[in-house]
Design a protein around this nucleic acid. Structure first.
Lengths: 304, 304
DNA sequence: AACAATTACGCACCACGTAAGGATA
DNA sequence: TATCCTTACGTGGTGCGTAATTGTT
């Protein structure tokens, strides 16, 4: 039994569903399932009672839950105290990010990260891909987060996958689109469509996802190409057309019902953020901590 | 960072030597070294100061030590509390063991194990290999510990390596053997030798070790074959001859100086105990706990 | 049909052992 | 030379994803 299994366990206990925990942890259902089974095998007793609508803690499971919380808290405290000794709080951290990532995906992560180091000087610099790459090379930023890594010298810099987002199709809440729930990509061309402009990040991610999905080219009824997320959101809300964007960028609208997600049955379009950073030796301790943070699967979940 | 690394870390902190910790954990020096390095990389700071004669905790290292102790205690408490719910204390456990293992290697482990379950009914049955195998098949014992597994139906039973002992050459403390410290196996035949009898376990282990070492047959100046460890020890002590036995079996004599170990430079003769047990489903919970215990590397170290 | 969980299988990574190297008394 | 630690490299076990299966609403 190890730390990771306890983290998985706690997420299952909290959500009362293996599938939900898997989503939070950015793992698949079977992965979580086998981890729980391994724990139960270790203790030689069931920790959950499986029922129709999820799982429920057994008595032994409750004991494990209590201790697991304590243990993970101790891990956290240990890291905090070490950080205090190292004076991580006094260090400065400047993160670079491209437009889409920087404006929608990263800010809430930074808030969460700042909670851990409330007195550190953490700043975010948003710019175009080329600007960010140049800043990285000139050492003006400690590390950068972006969707694509074109133009980055992969010999000079390291890459790491961060938590992933997803491209989704959005539609107005109007009743006339009501039947649009689960459709094939092909069917999209029956509706007016707004395409994000190039250089906007998401357009490139879309084309890459289409290629991966075996759908070679964009054959849609494009009524316009817009270079601003706000413009896209407004246009779709107003009922003019469908469009796409990153799911994180419209969390609020989806939740409030101002926009509705159209699920594609034959295509998923994941976005994997890349964190770009120089050789370990050139990284400050707090930059290391941010790397650890952004690579930890469930740290970003507060934002969803 | 995980539980295992903390356990390694604590052993290094306690012994102040990576090599000593490795021995206690039945690991190699590089294995422990890399684990410590991984921890230090995780925290981005040294946890030990390496010096000529070992290692010393840094300030950060002391913090980690304190929390690591807490965390591992919590793991222990968690397991204890789960065991309490499952009523493991009320279960009965009967362990079978062959002569050598049962008389020398296992008893101290059982004491340690009994500390964890003071009210459980734990008994040890020592017998010949065939007796133990029969008891296992008849379900009279829950599991068995032995050196060789000849005669065990490996389809019906599972095997697991437990902590290992070592066969060593012993000599009298007499001054006339004083020059015998580090010699080649070949040189042994210049001295009178007592060989343990077959069926005694260790004889089989010896022949296996010789075969592994590329030394096909026992070409020694054998003056007698004895079937009792006590007889062997007495004879060697009395100065009649050299002999072999498991290191654990003569811990006390080696420490007191009544017997002396002769190191072979061209041959090491490890003994790996095998734990034999039926299908998981047929095992009581406490038997499972004993399996977990005996397979955990550093649980047996209290006996060395 | 849709959702929740399990099982089977292939792959990629990590911890380990072996071997070799370096530093110090 | 002996002791103690580190670095380099090959290998096996474990955790994960994919895909297929079962069971429930």
């Amino acid at each position: 039994m190890n730390r990771n299994q306890l983290e998985v366990f706690l997420n299952v206990a909290r959500t009362k569903k293996i599938s939900s925990a898997a989503k939070l942890l950015h793992l698949t259902q079977p992965a979580v399932s086998t981890q729980i089974k391994a724990l139960e095998n270790y203790f030689q007793t069931p920790l959950f009672i499986r029922s129709k609508k999820g799982v429920e803690l057994t008595e032994a499971g409750q004991v494990v839950q209590n201790y697991a919380k304590k243990i993970l808290q101790n891990f956290d405290s240990m890291e905090q105290e070490v950080d205090y000794i190292l004076g991580v709080e006094n260090q400065k951290l400047t993160i670079g990010a491209t437009e889409t990532v920087g404006n929608y995906a990263i800010p809430c992560s930074i808030w969460t990260f700042r909670d851990k180091y409330p007195n550190a000087q953490i700043s975010l610099k948003v710019g175009s891909l080329s600007e960010i790459v140049r800043d990285l090379e000139e050492g003006k930023i400690d590390l950068a987060v972006m969707e694509t890594v074109t133009g980055v010298d992969t010999k000079e810099f390291n890459l790491k996958d961060a938590s992933s987002d997803e491209i989704i199709v959005i539609r107005p809440k109007d009743d006339k689109y009501k039947h649009l729930e689960n459709i094939f990509f092909e069917q999209l061309k029956e509706y007016p469509f707004i395409l994000p402009a190039y250089g906007f990040g998401i357009r490139e991610s879309l084309e890459f996802a289409l290629e991966q999905g075996g759908l070679k080219e964009i054959d849609l009824n494009v009524i316009s190409e817009l270079g601003s997320l706000e413009a896209i959101k407004s246009s779709v809300k107003a009922g003019y057309a469908l469009s796409i964007c990153s799911k994180m960028a419209v969390q609020k609208e989806l939740h409030d019902g101002d926009l509705v997600e159209v699920r594609l049955v034959d295509l998923v379009m994941p976005i994997t953020f890349k964190v770009v950073y120089p050789e370990s030796n050139f990284l400050s301790t707090i930059a290391h901590r941010f790397l650890r943070f952004i690579a930890t699967p469930d740290e970003l979940t507060l934002c969803e």
